[in-house]
Simulated assay, not measured.
Amino acid sequence: MRAYRLLTGEDTSAFCHKVTKAMAQGWELYGSPQYAFDPKAGVMRCAQAVIKVVPGDYDPDRRLGDL
């Protein structure tokens, strides 16, 4: 099964660490990062999709972050 996650957060080093940690756990980048300005909070927000091939079938109760 191929698992998919969309990592999101403010454009800070914490977001970069989140993506780096996912890659260290075997997730691979999927597509380009996306950025958007959040006018209400006055900050840039980031998103990066990641995928990972894992054994087993899809289970909606499985936490993707634990894969």
Rank of each mutant, 00 (worst) to 15 (best):
M1R: 12
R2Q: 15
R2E: 13
Y4C: 04
Y4M: 11
R5W: 00
R5Q: 15
L6S: 05
L6T: 13
T8K: 13
E10T: 13
E10V: 09
D11T: 08
D11S: 09
T12G: 01
T12A: 02
F15V: 08
F15D: 02
C16E: 11
H17K: 06
H17R: 14
K18V: 04
K18C: 01
V19R: 01
T20Q: 08
T20S: 15
T20H: 06
K21A: 15
K21Y: 10
A22T: 04
M23P: 00
A24Q: 15
A24P: 00
Q25W: 04
W27P: 00
E28T: 07
E28F: 00
Y30D: 12
Y30M: 05
Y30K: 10
Y30H: 15
Y30I: 02
S32A: 15
S32R: 12
Q34V: 12
Y35H: 11
A36P: 00
A36Y: 03
A36S: 13
A36C: 07
F37W: 15
F37T: 07
D38F: 04
P39N: 14
K40V: 15
A41N: 13
A41W: 04
G42K: 08
V43F: 02
M44R: 05
M44G: 05
R45D: 02
C46S: 06
A47Q: 08
Q48T: 12
Q48P: 02
A49Q: 05
A49L: 04
A49E: 03
A49V: 08
A49I: 03
V50I: 14
I51A: 07
K52A: 03
K52T: 05
V53T: 15
V53C: 03
V54P: 02
P55V: 02
P55M: 01
G56W: 10
G56C: 07
D57Y: 07
D57R: 15
Y58V: 08
D59F: 04
D61M: 11
R62I: 06
L64H: 04
